[in-house]
């Protein structure tokens, strides 16, 4: 059982800079070839402020929540079970996005091999004017610690 007292804990805002190289490497790692992710001229021609970040790019954003520490996970592992994003505008290289995360849920659910601990984390990013850029929500399954090496 995890500490449910952490539910509602909100992180301090952290600025995530969307870097050109990071956008290119992310697109490349997914095998996306569209030039709007690589070539600034192509992005500009598409009416974008900079290289377009692929849709799941906010997965790379960091918040100031350290889940392991907050939930005292020790050596236990985490498995990503689901993820959703809501977008309010495209994310482009050059953006400075302020990310805040909150532990939305800590619960126990029935798994194939008995009950498992589940953590839901929500985050949101805002631009420098304070406008919402995206909202995210992910479910993580807490796994038993690995056997000793």
């Amino acid at each position: 059982m995890l500490d449910k007292g952490m539910v509602g804990r909100r992180s301090e805002p952290v600025v995530n800079e969307v870097e050109k190289g990071a956008v290119r490497r992310f697109a490349q790692a997914l095998g996306i070839t569209d030039e709007v992710h690589y070539d600034e001229k192509a992005a500009e021609a598409a009416g974008l402020r900079g290289l377009l970040a692929p849709l799941t790019f906010p997965i790379t954003f960091r918040s100031s929540i350290d889940l392991r520490e907050a939930l005292a996970l020790g050596q236990r592992g985490l498995l990503h079970a689901d993820q959703s994003f809501e977008y309010f505008r495209p994310i482009c290289a050059g953006d400075r996005i302020q990310v805040v995360a909150v532990i939305a849920e800590v619960s126990e659910r029935a798994g194939a091999t008995g009950p498992m601990d589940v953590v839901v984390v929500e985050d949101e990013g805002r631009d420098e004017q304070g406008h919402l850029v995206y909202r995210g929500r992910k479910t993580l399954i807490v796994r038993p610690a690995p056997r000793e090496a």
Binding site: D34, P54, L55, H80, A81, Q83
Partner: peptide, 16 residues
């Protein structure tokens, strides 16, 4: 593989 990697592919499908 990371689940989010396959989600990235779905993002690519949508964008295209």
């Amino acid at each position: 593989a990371h689940g989010s990697m396959a989600m990235g592919f779905l993002g690519q499908l949508c964008s295209e």
